Computed example of a mutant assay.
Amino acid sequence: MAGEASAEAARKSTQEVSEREPEFPVPGDERAAAFFDLDNTVMQGAALFHFGRGLYKRKFFDTRELARFAWQQAWFRLAGVEDPEHMQEARDSALSIVQGHRVSELQSIGEEIYDEYMAERIWPGTRALAQAHLDAGQRVWLVTAAPVEIATVIARRLGLTGALGTVAESVDGVYTGKLVGEPLHGPAKAEAVRALALAEGLDLRRCAAYSDSHNDIPMLSLVGHPYAINPDSKLRKHARRMDWRLRDYRTGRKAAKVGIPAAAGVGAVAGGTAAAIALHRKRR
């Protein structure tokens, strides 16, 4: 009798929890999608640094440049926040390094660098979150200040829909050393997500966004389901104040591991509002 009573109490408790927290992500909701920041949210450290390591190995630049990349990465790992000055230096260095190289060459090298330096640095917990959205039939995009070529490789390898990233200018397939517009950072991410949602017919109130940085509060505030992942101190405080969900995979907590196909259909690849809108027009 006591066992039956306990079982019934447990059943009711589970039912009450499920009633308080509806299933999410909602299966089959075609107007819902998920947007993931990359650095320190999906991947440990900065993708641009890992890419720089791979280019150094291929003699694209010298030891002094590598030391600069290493210092910026060390700051990012220890402080857990993005330093605008370091980010600008890293972008300037990367642009000067790739100037004069063919886009196709960097895309091919990016595939190799992912295997060498990035694959093992994907947070299993965040990967499981992205897979949950995919399993529910939702589209999933990376949204990052990293070069769109790097972001596209990572998105494809994780089986995601596509990526929004910073776009480097190229003429006749060769990098010029300049950017197209501004880096996809801070408010620019929110602007790009809003434009993509409009182009794809998404309802942002039913969408989710994930990030580690307070710089992405504008993007997180756009959606109905914001998540703070491995958050910096400012984002953690803001998330608690706003009652957003938090996940921290740096603390040694066991994170779910899932198997994800190495390749899947890659959808939109864009670098900001104009690119997202242009993509929609092209599809029409």
Rank of each mutant, 00 (worst) to 15 (best):
I217S: 09
A151F: 02
V81S: 15
R139D: 02
A192F: 04
A90W: 06
A7C: 13
T166Q: 08
P231C: 01
F60H: 07
E21I: 14
Y227A: 07
P218L: 13
D29E: 12
V193A: 01
I277C: 01
S211Y: 02
I150E: 04
T144K: 07
R250I: 10
D62Q: 11
G125H: 14
G173H: 05
I277N: 00
R281H: 05
D37K: 13
V223E: 05
V153F: 00
H86P: 09
E8T: 13
F60W: 09
L160N: 03
P22V: 08
M1K: 06
A264V: 03
P84M: 04
R240I: 00
R241G: 02
A163E: 04
N230V: 04
G259Q: 13
H101F: 06
V81T: 14
D115R: 15
L158S: 02
F60A: 07
L106V: 03
V269D: 00
R194N: 07
F61G: 08
A136I: 11
L184D: 01
M219I: 09
L142H: 08
Y175V: 06
T251I: 12
Y114N: 10
G125D: 13
G259F: 13
R281M: 05
F49K: 04
I260L: 11
L38T: 13
A208W: 01
H86L: 10
R91W: 15
G3H: 11
A209H: 00
D243W: 03
L106P: 01
R31N: 12
G80L: 14
G100K: 07
V26S: 08
K178F: 13
E182G: 08
R121C: 11
F60T: 04
V266K: 00
K178Q: 11
S13F: 09
S221I: 12
T161N: 02
D212I: 04
A32M: 12
R240P: 01
Y56D: 05
H86Q: 10
V17D: 13
L279P: 00
L220N: 13
I97D: 02
K237E: 06
S213Q: 05
D203V: 09
G267K: 02
F24W: 11
L160K: 06
G271H: 01
A46S: 11
L164C: 07
T273A: 03
V98H: 00
Q138S: 09
T176D: 03
V148R: 07
G3A: 10
W141K: 00
N230Q: 05
V153G: 00
W123M: 10
A79R: 15
A46D: 06
D232H: 05
L204Y: 01
G3M: 11
F51P: 01
F36E: 10
A163M: 07
L202C: 04
K257R: 15
V269R: 01
E8F: 11
I229G: 04
R156L: 01
G80E: 13
Y114T: 10
E116Y: 14
A163T: 05
G267W: 00
L134V: 13
E19A: 14
G272R: 03
A255M: 15
R236T: 00
A274E: 07
L179D: 10
P22A: 05
R102P: 03
L235C: 02
A9E: 14
E112L: 14
A255H: 12
S221T: 14
Y210F: 06
A155L: 01
A239N: 00
I97T: 08
F69Y: 15
A34T: 09
H225V: 12
A146H: 04
